[in-house]
């Protein structure tokens, strides 16, 4: 399934976001420094923000088309979104968080049911816990599980490991790889960590000041720059 972003434009405080790209990878990294417009781009795809111009098509289905006045609301897009802080609902148990997007488990598609998702993410034992008692890594895995259980056609991950310390990031990367391999849901992965890009992604879009400044597979892209291996600026 491909994500087509054509002629997207949205003026922001310090620059204008302008993106034209077709993303067809299993996991596409949206890479760039803080404030490059990465989160805004995800919000536009998720239907949480409307662009000033342009079109967003996922798997051939137009979700946003400013010219045609098409705007499918976020709740009908089936586009999952995991923000940096996880944004778990603090008043609900882990289980009720997980089932929020899919209350009727009988209707869950094969493979995306509660038992399987919690097994892959190793969170089954947390189901009865209160959100406030979870560690940072547990929270992120629950947030990921909750998004998966809503059976999205596309999953947007906004720096899911950014708030965690290095050893925890190392431990969580394999879970993300398992999600990629197990569920075959295309993912857009916002990050500013080259390690995460190398470990998970097969395509990279480098965003700077709201524009795509580079594009390509991670190996080619990171190897192409001289000097510090991960320096992508310039």
């Amino acid at each position: 399934m491909s994500v087509e972003l054509s002629g997207l434009r949205l003026p922001l405080a310090h620059f204008t976001l302008e993106v034209d790209a077709t993303l067809a990878g299993r996991v596409t990294a949206i890479f760039g420094a803080s404030g490059a417009g990465k989160t805004t781009l995800l919000e536009i795809i998720a239907g949480l923000r409307a662009p000033a111009a342009g079109r967003v098509t996922v798997g051939g289905v137009p979700l946003t088309d400013v010219a045609a006045r098409t705007f499918v609301p976020a709740e009908r897009r089936a586009v999952g979104y995991v923000p940096q802080e996880g944004a778990l609902f603090p008043h609900l148990s882990v289980r009720r968080n997980l089932l929020y997007g899919c209350p009727a488990q009988a209707d869950a598609p094969a493979g995306l049911n509660l038992a399987h998702v919690t097994e892959v993410l190793e969170i089954a034992r947390l189901e009865d816990r209160v959100i406030g008692t979870l560690s940072g890594g547990e929270k992120q895995r629950v947030a990921l599980g909750r998004a998966l259980l809503a059976s999205p056609r596309l999953l947007l991950l906004d720096e899911p490991l950014a708030g965690l310390d290095a050893p925890l990031r190392e431990r969580l990367l394999p879970y993300l790889a398992r999600v990629r391999d197990e569920f075959a849901i295309p993912m857009l992965y916002v990050t500013h960590s080259p390690d995460e890009v190398m470990a998970l992604c097969d395509d990279v879009l480098v965003l700077d000041q709201g524009r795509v400044v580079r594009r390509g597979p991670p190996t080619a892209l990171f190897a192409a720059t001289g000097g510090p291996r991960y320096e992508l600026r310039g």
Binding site: E75, F89, Y100
Partner: peptide, 12 residues
């Protein structure tokens, strides 16, 4: 953000 995430999970 919690309300936004709830919407992406299909809640009107």
């Amino acid at each position: 953000r919690l309300e936004q995430v709830a919407r992406t999970l299909g809640a009107g």
